[in-house]
């Protein structure tokens, strides 16, 4: 596949990914959706998933450092993750009070974010499992037809 075709393919794949969201936005004239509420949700989802994924990767970096005999790997990755995390948090939350949804306190908001992340992860995890299983269920059939 040449480079131009590859870029076109990636752009088309991204458009397909965004197509349902764009369609929903086009039909949203009568919805009570507020952009600020959506942005708050985006930032909360972003920061929660970034934090939890980073903790998960840091733990795995210790395993990596042991198997590759690179003792500094976890500490360097932690530094990158922390710097990037602090930078994006400052960038996204610089408007003050931006991250609070319908919860009474900061603690309630943090706990709600974790539960919300768990529910979203369950939904996305199920979809990814379905995607992989559908892919392989049909690969098996095709393989037998053309050995």
């Amino acid at each position: 596949m040449n480079k131009r075709l590859r870029v076109q393919s990636i752009l088309f794949a991204m458009s397909l990914f965004l197509l349902p969201i764009v369609a929903l936005i086009l039909f949203s004239q009568h919805s009570t959706y507020e952009t600020e509420q959506g942005l708050t949700r985006f930032v909360n989802a972003f920061l929660t998933s970034y934090t939890i994924a980073s903790v998960f990767f840091v733990i795995n970096m210790f395993q990596y450092s042991k198997s590759r005999k690179e003792p500094t790997a976890p500490w360097i990755s932690m530094t990158y993750a922390a710097v990037l995390g602090i930078f994006t948090t400052l960038l996204l939350s610089s408007q003050g009070g931006f991250l609070m949804e319908e919860n009474g306190s900061q603690r309630a908001q943090v706990l709600y974010n974790v539960i919300h992340f768990t529910v979203t992860t369950l939904a996305i995890g199920t979809v990814v499992s379905i995607l992989v299983l559908i892919l392989f269920v049909n690969l098996g059939v095709k393989e037998t037809e053309n050995p």
Binding site: I21, I25, G38, R41, F42, V43, N44, A45, F46, T120
Partner: peptide
């Protein structure tokens, strides 16, 4: 949910 998925 779209904000959630994109944020995730």
């Amino acid at each position: 949910a779209a904000s959630d998925v994109l944020g995730f």
